[in-house]
Amino acid sequence: MEAFFQTYGFLLVYMCLQALLGLSTYLPLMAGQLSLASSGFYAIGGYVAAILSTQVFHTSGAYPIGYLLLETLLAGLLSGVVAVVVGIPALRLRGIYLALATIAMVEILRVVSLNLSITGGAVGIFGIAQPFSSPLGYMWLVGPLLLLVMFFAYRLEGSRIGRAFIALREDELAADAMGINPTYHKVLAFALGAMLAGVVGAISAHFLNTWNARQGTFDVSIAVLAYVLIGGSRSFAGPVLGGMVLTALPEVLRPLKDLRFIVDGLLLMLAAIYLPQGLANPNWLARRKTAPVREKT
């Protein structure tokens, strides 16, 4: 058992962090907004933590948790502000167009971070101070955060704002006619997701001990979208489950050696085809269903 936690301690925490990233894409999707910007805010959050902890807060010994919490707060706030600035013009777009606009944002951020000296160019920032003595130690922070965000998402789905989000997803025109302000709610959903992604980035920078321009990329955006879609995009349980399963999969398949990513890809394909509702099928979550699940035809 101890050996298991030693080997997979990192993976377990990483699964939770990826689940949180999944949730950060799920939040705008709840309001019908297909945003792929999570990886961009994730990158911003990571840089905030990396720069603050290596250049501003000088400490010796274990890094104080308080500083880490302060970093996550600032990372979340900055991401939220950027999200509002980008979101107000961008969220007029719909569907695939919004997805592409957000990808454009991610890619611009990547190129800029490669060229700034404060972000360390290609090498990035390394030697980030550690608040915990082992990777598994991060579970004390990440575990409660995940539960908290899940609880928040659960409550949100049943709340007035959450119902407004879902109404926008189902039919924007009708929602507008019912007096739901589309712009306000879309930007709110987008900013909530962005803040969460920024927080996850800040924790991840410490967790990985290094941060660079390879962290927030198009590939990450697509991987996170796959978490939501494979997990199920109709309840908060979907992205959590999807994020965990898809993150663990390459490690579970490790014994297959050279074949592992071939099988990984096959499973991704099969899951998309045979689990159209996602792993977290709302039918077996029916008891806490808040909105009628409408089959698309």
Binding site: Q6, T7, F10, L11, P135, L208, Q215, E251, R254, R260
Partner: peptide
């Protein structure tokens, strides 16, 4: 013992953990 790291940071950490503990 060859354990693939793939191209990313998390993959490298996972591979190292497998090498060390398994």
């Amino acid at each position: 013992y060859f354990e693939d790291t793939s191209g990313d940071e998390a993959g490298a950490i996972n591979a190292f953990q497998t090498q060390i503990n398994r």
